[in-house]
C-alpha cells in the first residue's frame, strides 16, 4: 500500500514539479519617499510627472535652477512625448526650481 502511494506520488507530482509553471509577484505601491514637497505647482507636477514613473525619479536628482529643470521637463516631452503644454512646463519648472533648487545646500563630497 505504502509503495503504491509513493509511486502514485511520483507519477502525479514529478511531471508537474518539473514543468512547474507560473511565477507571480505583487509589487508595492509607490513609496512615500518619492512624494514631492508641497508648494505652488506641486500638485500639477505630481500628476504630470507621475504618469510614467514614480516621482522618486525627481527627488534625488541633482538640484537645479529653472533652466536645468526646464531641460529635464523638455526632455520628457521631446523624447517620451509627455503630455505637458507650454504653460505647464513653466509652472512645473518653477515649482521644481523652488522645491529642488540650487539654494538648498547639496553635498557632492565623495564618500
Amino acid at each position: 500500500m505504502k509503495r503504491v502511494i509513493v509511486l502514485s506520488f511520483l507519477i502525479l507530482v514529478i511531471p508537474f514539479a518539473v514543468f512547474s509553471v507560473e511565477k507571480k509577484i505583487q509589487l508595492p505601491p509607490d513609496h512615500p519617499f518619492g512624494k514631492l514637497t508641497a508648494g505652488p505647482g506641486s500638485e500639477l507636477t505630481e500628476k504630470k510627472c507621475g504618469l510614467c514613473h514614480s516621482t522618486d525619479y525627481i527627488v534625488r536628482q541633482p538640484r537645479g535652477d529653472f533652466k536645468r529643470w526646464q531641460g529635464v521637463v523638455t526632455k520628457m516631452i521631446k523624447v517620451y512625448a509627455a503630455p505637458i503644454d507650454e504653460q505647464e512646463v513653466r509652472t512645473i519648472a518653477d515649482y521644481l526650481a523652488s522645491a529642488y533648487g540650487t539654494a538648498a545646500a547639496e553635498t557632492t563630497k565623495p564618500k
Partner: peptide
Amino acid sequence: LSGVCALGD
C-alpha cells in the same frame, strides 16, 4: 513545489 513565489504574496 509550484513556481509561484510565496514571498511574492
